[in-house]
Amino acid sequence: MRRPLYIKALRGLALLAIAFWSAFPIALVVLSSFKPARDIFVFPPTWAFTPTLANYAGLWLRWPDFFRTLGNSLIVTLGATALAVIVSAMAGYVYSRKRNPYLAGSAFFMIFVRLFPPIVVTLPLFPLVNALRLNDTHLILIILYATFFVSMGTMILKAFVDQIPRELDEAAMVDGAGVWGVFRRVILPLSAQGMIAVGVFVFVYAWNEFLFAFIFTTSAAKTAPLVLSEMTGAVDGVEWGVLFAATTVQLVPVLIFVLLAQKYLIAGLTAGATKG
């Protein structure tokens, strides 16, 4: 049955409104980063202006450590994403193919732990991390970020692996593959979409995360969100143009990654939705 025209129009308008609602703040930040600082908050706002790179130059000159911390963000994000995806894939495979009460209990425990707000876990960890000399290292952030996403990643990948026919495992085993061989040659290639979906979640989370980075880093592993936080707390007045420039730079890698991976994201999220 064809829908009436006005329904289509309403749906289009609703989509437009949602897109505007989501994109407007981002567009405002990006546009403002190219405005002269004195015109950013001028009333009434100006939409036509001569773009300038002065804010980016200011960022480079006055906050050089922002770019160094972006490097740290990248190391930590890639490390956490890789670790979370690998561990989740292996765990998802096991939860999908094996059944026993211990596994069921561990799955429940994994989700139960995830229900705690991060701050509850973080503060008691501080003296421990300090004693282990892991403070201010990339490794501690990689472990923490990955740990917080393994539970969700495991469940997403379990749903993916559930969709892969067991007959493929059995055929591989008949051909001489062991459990590891089945996982590497059959399961991994067929659950790539789910792994990318999990990767996107971890990547976005790790790239923007503040709390763990604030508590467990000082200088060597300091990440970019900490510098952004400092920019907003400047006691001699926030340089809004520079802050918007930094925000735009911070936004670019994650935006590119999500755009590249978005088709897998939908597939990953809907995996197992029609199972049963």
Binding site: F214, I215, T218, S219, S229, E230, T232, G233, V235
Partner: peptide, 12 residues
Amino acid sequence: WVTFDTGPLQER
């Protein structure tokens, strides 16, 4: 130097 915003600085 290890720098923070005011509140986080005191807390840390």
